[in-house]
């Protein structure tokens, strides 16, 4: 195994693109090192990207924020601006692992790991976040929703490096929330999860809604019908019930050591409901 700290993104892409063996990009390392320890993967090349330009920065941009790929959960949680604009995304990121893991883990790493149970991903999908990718052919932007393609798999091509995630501006009366279910209070992988982002009219009527679920399908899913069930309502019981039904109908989970199909489906609906109500309250809606 070689460990390399390239001088710039171009070199980083070229290194990974040109590696014939197995390569891994290292940011926070909280997934990669676990895989090394478990001997799940033995990379020939590790490319550390933390030191590259912009990787550790959070920058205000067009009313939103661009979050560098190596920004840790702890750093994100300390950023009052992002926390105020996208509290659901920040709380999702902060749920990952322990305080120690938060000192290293990154949102982009969470995304690239390709886990359907990744905590930050439903929140980013609900937020309609966009990943910026540096590849062999230059730079491009791809919605976060389109990055995961299955457990442990992504749509990234060889040589691609996600350099940042962009969380867009949002109007007044809008907010988001994220909830997951785990058997303990900390340190577990989500059994099911839900990220919800809402935009309200001044009178509290829901104008736009995005509901994303985790750990209930091969990838994080955006449940458009669930969002649609909320639009035009003030989140009355019928609207919530319709949203939950749409969420449950989308679930296509597996039964494993962490939960059954039945349990994941039921819990995803419950979490979607609870996250919706939190987001609604945060956006200034009153029930």
């Amino acid at each position: 195994m070689r460990y390399v700290k390239p001088e710039n993104l171009k070199d980083a892409s070229a290194l990974i693109g040109g590696e014939e063996g197995i390569s891994r990009i290292l940011a926070g390392g909280t997934d990669v090192l676990v895989q090394l320890k478990a001997e799940m993967v033995e990379p020939d090349l590790i490319v550390d990207v933390k030191h590259l330009d912009g990787m550790r920065e959070i920058v205000a941009e067009d009313g939103g924020y661009r979050i560098g790929a190596a920004v840790s959960g702890a750093e994100l949680g300390e950023h009052t601006g992002v926390k105020a604009l996208w509290p659901g995304v920040v709380e999702a990121m902060e749920l990952i692992g322990s305080t120690q893991v938060q000192g290293r883990a990154t949102m982009v790493g969470n995304l690239c790991n390709g886990s359907p149970a990744a905590d930050s991903v439903p929140a980013m999908v609900a937020a309609d976040a966009v990943a910026r990718i540096h590849g062999l052919a230059g730079e491009r932007d791809i919605p976060v929703l389109d990055i995961p393609t299955g457990p442990g798999r992504t749509s990234l091509a060889k040589g691609d490096i996600i350099t940042s995630v962009f969380l867009p501006a949002r109007p007044d009366h809008a907010s988001d929330a994220y909830l997951r279910f785990i058997p303990r209070t900390e340190m577990d992988i989500a059994v099911a999860s839900a990220g919800v982002s809402l935009e309200l009219d001044a009178d509290g009527t829901c104008r736009a809604a995005r509901v994303a679920l985790g750990a209930v399908a091969p990838t994080v899913v955006l449940v458009e019908a669930a969002g649609a069930a909320l639009v035009g309502t003030k989140l009355d019981d019928a609207a919530i019930a319709a949203m939950v039904q749409a969420a449950e109908a989308t679930c296509n989970p597996i039964s494993d050591k962490r939960g059954t199909v039945e349990y994941r489906t039921k819990t995803a609906g419950v979490l979607a409901k609870r996250a919706t109500l939190i987001a609604y309250a945060r956006a200034g809606g009153q029930k």
């Binding site: 058997p183 303990r184 209070t185 900390e186 340190m187 577990d188 992988i189 494993d256 050591k257 962490r258």
Partner: peptide, 16 residues
């Protein structure tokens, strides 16, 4: 054995 680690063999943590 499917849970040979502290991630899925869930001993209580302080916040529990």
């Amino acid at each position: 054995l499917q849970n040979a680690g502290f991630l899925d063999y869930r001993v209580p943590v302080a916040s529990d």
